[in-house]
């Protein structure tokens, strides 16, 4: 049912909508709990909270198939949940224990889960965008039906890598969807200070690909726009840039002082993606208050169990640091 306006994907069922709600709620609960544990010193690190932005990652990843790949940005926690990564797995990664996916080598937001189609992003803002294009090109060269989804923020769209990558993707007709999570701030610098245009989506035109502005607080809208772009890519019609307008309700990182206007935060909080979908589910009689409460309790219970289990995991052997720098042991490099 792909439409000319780029909207695509199958009709969402009741079950889909409730699951999208649950994924967003899980992300919110996880983030808020992790920040408390970090504050308490129970976790060695905090995270870059995606609170307020949950609809983007969930909506963009929800309809993806097993052959598709994503590279999350450091704030796209929802890409992990939606691709099936568990809270226990991400807690393991944050603790760096021996059960974590990289066995302690890198943390949760730079984690890759290849069997769930997740490539690790690097710590360099925007650095993953050309990598995503290459991944997409590989999928195409290998004759896979898979599509690559690249997540990044408004700040990354000012990096040269963004521009080189979009240009390359366009000329190579790579099956990639660029999902820009424009939360209006590059860390602390307002997007309007960092660029002279209103809509990042407009940049797509310069590279010869469609660019669309999407309501990033509306998970269904994100889903539909992404599915449209994914369908286009799958058909070999090339890449798309989606700009999801969104907002983070919390500071960039726990240690950052909040300097954004309080009334701006308040205004955006009125468009909380979880509440927006929750109201709709309630109105349509799909999920009532009690159901939401039970869902949240189930998430909390899983989370409590997960932290206990994660903390009980052994740490990796220090000598493992020499593994997987190269295929051969590090000492084989001679010097």
């Amino acid at each position: 049912m792909d439409r000319k306006d780029g909207i695509g994907g199958r009709e969402l069922t009741t079950k889909d909508l409730v699951e999208m709600y649950r994924l967003m709620l899980q992300s919110r609960c996880f983030t808020e709990q992790v920040l408390v544990w970090y504050e308490e010193g129970r976790l060695p690190q905090g995270l870059h909270p995606s609170v307020g932005q949950e609809a983007v990652g969930v909506g963009a990843c929800y309809g993806l198939g097993p052959d598709d790949w994503v590279i999350p940005s450091l704030r796209t926690a929802e890409a992990f949940w939606t691709r099936g990564v568990t809270m226990l797995e991400q807690l393991n990664a944050m603790l760096g224990n021996a059960a974590s996916v990289s066995r302690g080598k890198e943390t949760s937001h730079h984690a890759g889960y290849p069997e769930r189609g997740i490539l690790a992003g690097t710590g360099i803002v925007g650095g993953s965008i050309p990598v995503a294009v290459g991944g997409a090109l590989a999928l195409k060269m290998r004759g896979s039906e898979g599509v690559m989804v690249s997540f990044f923020g408004d700040g990354a769209s000012n990096r040269g890598d963004f521009h080189e990558a979009l240009n390359l993707a366009a000329v190579l007709e790579a099956p990639v969807v660029f999902v820009c999570e424009n939360n209006l701030y590059a860390q602390t610098v307002p997007a309007a200070v960092g660029m002279a245009i209103e809509d990042i989506a407009d940049r797509a035109m310069g590279y010869g690909m469609p660019g669309r502005v999407v309501d990033g607080q509306d998970v269904v809208a994100v889903y539909a726009a992404t599915q449209g772009a994914v369908g286009r890519a799958r058909r070999g019609e090339g890449p798309t840039l989606l700009e999801c307008k969104t907002y983070r309700f919390l500071p960039h990182y726990p240690i950052f002082e909040e300097k954004r206007p309080a009334e701006e935060i308040e205004r955006w909080r009125e468009r909380d993606p979880i509440e927006m979908l929750g109201r709709r589910l309630e109105e349509e009689g799909l999920l009532d208050e009690q159901g939401k409460l039970e869902m949240e309790e189930a998430i909390e219970a899983e989370l409590q169990e997960a932290i206990g289990e994660a903390e009980g995991m052994p740490m990796p052997d220090p000598q493992e640091v020499f593994e997987n720098v190269y295929r051969e042991p590090v000492e084989a490099m001679g010097l």
């Binding site: 990598v131 060269m141 290998r142 080189e164």
Partner: peptide
């Protein structure tokens, strides 16, 4: 042209692209 690719002048972009392709099974 699928396997012998003239690229734009985008050194960072093409190396990044090669990394992505290599990660997903190619030998660029």
């Amino acid at each position: 042209p699928e396997r012998v690719i003239d690229t734009p002048i985008s050194e960072s972009g093409i190396v990044g692209l090669a990394v992505g392709a290599a990660l997903l099974g190619m030998r660029p």
